[in-house]
Write a protein that binds this DNA or RNA. Structure first.
Lengths: 204, 204
DNA sequence: TATAATAAATGACACGATGTCATGTGTCAA
DNA sequence: TTGACACATGACATCGTGTCATTTATTATA
């Protein structure tokens, strides 16, 4: 997490810094991003950056979570909309991610994140479902929304694994969209095929 | 790919270099590995490294593929053993990965790879199933081995997606084994639960 | 064998990035 | 007015990368 001084910053200065960092992390993936570029664009001295953040990663994960939180909220809305049908909610989330315009700010940021998902980054994305996370108030918010009646499970244990499976597959579809440079339609088509396979089962 | 000069190297020197690189990539993940450490351990001048490899990544992916090829062969053997039952073959592959001893050379190398899977690294792991890959002679070897009769699919298209799904889930289970520091037994248990869910379908 | 041509080895160097730290500046309470 | 404290600043030590001019070895050719 950013240090206190960061949050105490006058809003204009803080926003300029955030914009600068976003630009850098949109330009290249985390490992190649340079603090030098960020401070240059933000027009702050190098030492100040370390006054606000521990290091590059600290800034990165802060921004990633910020970006992701918006989508989490939309996901919860979708769950409500579809009466707890988790497949429909995931489909809408997937579509939401496809809608991102190449010109929009977040597009390349997200792309760089997805093309370089490590377990750390995936954790940020899937934290919402993680019981062990401190931030599990969101989980408590979500769990009761999900309609388990239509799920082919025997216990709570299996429910957890279903979520795991769906997120893995959704993720892979997103990554593939970017690596294979797929159109929205193509990506969605593949996603739907795989979700249907998941629903009906792979085995005869 | 490493340059020709690398393969022309006397075996002793080449092995020393390989060992040094493996050690470094076992110590830390790719992004933190340093060529300086490698050349120091291998006792070659810095310039020589660039005589043999394009850069750090070149060396890394060469080693990763080398490590992985052995397992691919075992996977094919498993497919034969279980008369093309892809689930059984994946299970045996998964178990094989769990067996790796912490003391063995490859353990930390593999761990660092798995904890930092990007799409690039995942490509190396899943290349065996990739039609578009030049190296698809392996795919041609595998495809006819798989028994499609027990798979709940209508066409070739769906078959591709089944493979995608199974690999995603297998991967996630492996990564989780390392991040959560699970025992062999625990990891396998989770994996089997998820595979059974995949087989029977998630939806009622 | 002598010589030219080609391949490989070498390490100093230019460049750029990171994180730290001593010093400077501003603010606020006593 | 003064001292304490938080924050700002940029020079610097350190380390890592990739290049290149030079040297050394190897191979081909006459």
């Amino acid at each position: 997490m950013p240090k206190l001084t960061f949050f105490n910053l006058p809003e204009i200065k803080r926003n300029k810094l955030i914009k600068a960092a976003e630009a850098e992390f949109s330009r290249v993936p985390l490992s190649q991003a340079s603090i030098s570029n960020i401070v240059k664009a933000a027009e702050i001295p190098r030492g100040s950056f370390y006054q606000y953040f521990e290091n590059k990663e600290d800034a990165y994960y802060f921004l990633l979570e910020e970006q992701w939180n918006k989508r989490q909220d939309k996901f919860i809305a979708s769950l409500n909309k579809y009466n707890g049908d988790i497949f429909e909610a995931f489909k809408e989330l997937f579509q939401l991610m496809l809608e991102e315009k190449k010109t929009e700010d977040g597009y390349n940021f997200l792309k760089n994140a997805l093309l370089n998902v490590t377990h750390e980054i995936e954790d940020v994305f899937t934290r919402i479902f993680d019981e062990k996370q401190i931030d599990s108030n969101k989980l408590k918010e979500i769990t009761p929304l999900i309609n388990k009646d239509c799920l082919n499970i025997s216990g709570e244990e299996e429910f957890y694994h279903i979520i795991q499976i769906i997120t893995s597959v959704t993720f892979r579809n997103l990554v593939e969209k970017y690596t294979r440079n797929m159109s929205k339609e193509e990506a969605l088509e593949n996603f739907v095929i795989e979700m249907n396979l998941l629903k009906k089962g792979l085995y005869k």
